[in-house]
Write a protein that binds this DNA or RNA. Structure first.
Lengths: 349, 349
DNA sequence: TGACAATATTGGAACGTTCCAATTATTTTG
DNA sequence: CAAAATAATTGGAACGTTCCAATATTGTCA
């Protein structure tokens, strides 16, 4: 079972041409005669030749390997899985292949993974940075002229393009919807307070409360892991307050689902006894019961736009950073009850 | 902004040594003097050198690039996301980097992605094959001596190792649990009937019914997409039957969640009015309300074992295929009601 | 001090490809 | 039919690394 690597030279010998000709065939050059091309291709198939991109890249240090690296911080969150699928759609049709890696919020891992992708000569990188990523972590990459687009989270000070969603506006719209339904005590549930995304959504939440003439009470802001389990814990704490909230804007959909679970565990029905709004509009939001009212970020669409941004940058060759803020819209479903409940709630006051 | 690539020769010149010495430093060879090593490393940092793995691999065609390729057929299914995370854990601690790619069940895409990974000289491949994958699709890979492990699904006739879960036993155990609770009309919901996994689970379902002295009625087997939406549709059809089932084994957890949603939409409470059993034990199964009774496949654990299998094969260098069937166990939670309901149900007959 | 071993360092060939300039074969043109 | 134009093919140098064998430096001991 000795594996001898098949090279262009083997092909050349077997086809009775020179290695240069084989190389031209591989690049689909128009310079080569139709008959020879067919002959060479036949031999290639016959001998089971595998193109050695390493060797090729060595020679043509300019033309990169048709690979886009995608690095995300939490693959178990389906938001990122869908983001990746969105990226894949456009990356694919542009003739690239996407290699995805997960950091699980580990900075060390992120460094390793990015280094490894770089060594393999990726054409560009889409990064949802792990918490605590600094501009210096990306510096060498951009200095080397590798196009980078940050997504979901920004890295302060880094001169790279970014695609984030309008968290402030989304949270504002969601809370305004809740106040419009007559809610006066509205909690903000879940998320890590030291992240930019948390902060943007929280600011939008607070601004909407102020706009509605309500005061933002600190005890109604309850951080937690941005996961389903975190949501359960957060809503539990919210319900243990002396004066309970009647509604909550959740950091993301995972937290919102957790909040629904937590409510049911306390024999309360989400959408009836308590209004829940999520953030992201994950695919399950529509089919869950009750269907989740949530701020739609459209992860797939976001992935597509991010990929387009990156491709534009790859093709242009220039590197002036561009920050796109994706618009966002509130999708009203069943988890907040209807306006009919409003009278009832107001009557209680 | 002209990017000149920094090479070992530049380093050598700047450090006043030969390129060979720099190479030795890069490989952390013990042959080089401590002082020179420090000097060289300093220069490397200073000039922002990036290791060119392409060139390295070219020379040492044996030692592969420390990369494990993972190709899955549906990244939006969180089962695969968790599988990938499990793989990552062991792959990572073995000093490898995982590159993940998604095929979305497209055979063409799968071909492209595998080819691309191969060109980059992956050390091994873990593949959850797209539907319709044939042994010939893997032939060239194994012929070239690249270790391959199939996971979740097998490819008939392919001489590669595989790691699948004991679908027959799991389904059997689940259904036996249901018959033990007194259920007599048990549906099998979701999944595509033309897949091996479906078949194995279905056979386990049928065998358990027979063992319990019940006959398996065809109308109770309702296929659908193996997704949440598919589960909603399937349970809907089940409830429209003249003689309704009182329980269901679902193809996977996603279908089971969908079934719960569908039940609620019809004002039935899963776990009380209807027993639901899932398959996979996805991470949300525990925190959902009601907590899902399901056959635990432990995707992370499965990922870990798969990765171990692959690493073993990479290190051994030999390629004798090994088929591991992961054991599986029923995790009883709240979605089936308790034995207390059994008397009630039997009383009705 | 000379002989030997141990420790550090090095030049050059090789890996599989692409590119360039040069060459050969074929066709067109005056 | 020679000359020019075009089409097809080719050998060799380069890309950045590792490996090998060889050399240079230092240390040890009788």
């Amino acid at each position: 079972m000795v594996k001898e690597r098949v090279t262009v030279i083997d092909i050349a010998r077997a086809a009775g041409v020179s290695k240069s000709t084989v190389s031209l065939v591989l690049q689909a050059s128009p310079l080569v005669n139709e008959a020879t091309r067919a002959k060479v291709n036949a031999v290639i198939r016959e001998l089971g030749y595998v193109y050695n991109r390493g060797a090729a890249n060595l020679r043509q240090s300019n033309a990169k390997s048709k690979i886009i690296g995608v690095v995300v911080n939490d693959l178990t969150n389906s938001f990122f899985a869908e983001l990746a699928v969105g990226i894949d759609m456009v990356v694919q049709s542009a003739g690239y292949v996407q290699f995805l890696a997960n950091t699980g919020e580990s900075l060390d891992r992120q460094r390793e993974v990015i280094a490894s992708m770089r060594e393999h000569g990726i054409s560009g990188l889409i990064l949802s940075p792990a918490r605590g990523t600094e501009a210096s972590d990306l510096k060498s990459l951009v200095a080397a002229g590798v196009p980078v687009v940050n997504v979901v989270r920004q890295v302060p000070g880094a001169k790279v393009s970014s695609m984030i969603s309008d968290n402030h506006a989304g949270a504002h719209e969601a809370v305004t919807h809740l106040t419009g339904l007559g809610h006066r005590r509205i909690a903000f549930l879940g998320g890590f307070p030291d992240t930019a995304v948390f902060n943007e959504r929280f600011q939008g939440y607070r601004a909407a409360l102020v706009d509605a003439g309500l005061e933002a009470s600190g005890e109604l802001v309850i951080g937690s892991a941005p996961s389903r389990a975190g949501g359960v814990a957060a809503v539990e704490r919210a319900l243990s307050l002396a004066v309970q909230p009647t509604a909550a804007l959740c950091f993301n959909d995972a937290v919102a689902f957790g909040a629904c679970d937590g409510l049911r565990a306390k024999r309360m029905e989400p959408g009836v006894d308590f209004a829940v709004v999520g953030f992201d509009d994950v695919i399950e939001a529509k089919t869950a019961v009750p269907a989740l009212t949530t701020v739609s970020v459209d992860p797939q669409g976001m992935g597509r736009r991010t990929a387009q941004l990156l491709l534009k940058q790859i093709n242009a060759g220039k590197a002036d950073a561009e920050a796109i803020v994706g618009s966002v819209r509130l999708v009203i479903r069943q988890s907040c009850g209807s306006a009919a409940d409003k009278r009832e709630r107001l009557a209680l006051i």
